[in-house]
Computed example of a mutant assay.
Amino acid sequence: MDARRGDWIQTYTLKQFWPLDPRPEDVDIQDIGHALSMQCRFTGHCHTFYSVAEHCVRVSERAGTLMQQIGGFSHDVMRAMQWGLLHDAAEAYLVDLARPVKHDESMAAYRRAERQVMIAVRAKFGLVGGLPDEVKDADNDLLWTEARDLFPSCHPAWTWRGEPLAERIQPMTQPEAKAAFLARFSVLFGAEVAR
């Protein structure tokens, strides 16, 4: 095997994963589903545990709805839902950073690493094209919905860029979120996944 850049982490499925030298063959949906179900949104500052895996399931559902509303073809709807489910997949291997940190100019290396992991994820699961606008819109819709439902109240400095969804979020447990994520993957990608 050729030399890999950087060091590796051990994943849930006991694989070696090189975050700075990711390859499609190292990506595993079990690792992604498990790790995202263990990570809390808002860097853990919400009033109850709410996983990134549940967020991804909800973004996937919302992206499909948005694509249907604009009259997207069935393959466009499927593509939006697939991207929605996996839009934060890199966080399974790198963890997420708070937006103010992640987008600071000093974090360019982190953003490059995140892009490289997403390239490996795209290749592994056959994601077509770039991140659809409907996924970005769904992600923002969920951000405002989550802020409304997961904090006792929002700081007055929040700048609302969307309308929270009518549905109120009742967070899943970690095992429920992992199962929901893997079940949705099975449906969207036509692949049986052990849960």
Rank of each mutant, 00 (worst) to 15 (best):
163 E>P: 01
176 E>V: 01
123 A>Y: 03
73 F>I: 05
79 R>A: 12
13 T>K: 07
99 R>L: 11
176 E>I: 05
85 L>I: 10
155 H>A: 15
176 E>K: 10
5 R>Q: 14
133 D>S: 14
164 P>D: 02
85 L>Q: 07
42 F>I: 07
64 G>S: 10
44 G>W: 07
23 R>M: 00
52 V>L: 14
78 M>L: 15
21 D>C: 02
36 L>S: 08
118 M>Y: 09
47 H>M: 11
192 E>W: 03
106 S>G: 12
71 G>R: 05
115 R>S: 12
109 A>G: 05
140 N>Y: 02
95 V>A: 14
104 D>H: 15
28 D>L: 04
70 I>F: 01
77 V>I: 15
179 A>E: 13
110 Y>E: 08
44 G>Q: 05
141 D>Q: 11
45 H>C: 09
54 E>F: 13
88 D>I: 01
99 R>G: 09
61 E>A: 13
58 R>D: 03
135 V>N: 00
11 T>D: 06
147 A>R: 11
111 R>P: 05
187 V>G: 05
27 V>P: 03
134 E>P: 00
164 P>L: 10
134 E>N: 02
103 H>P: 03
100 P>H: 13
104 D>A: 15
42 F>S: 10
102 K>G: 08
126 G>H: 10
85 L>C: 02
81 M>W: 00
135 V>R: 00
109 A>Y: 08
131 L>Q: 06
186 S>A: 15
146 E>H: 03
148 R>L: 09
92 A>M: 04
76 D>V: 01
54 E>P: 04
140 N>D: 07
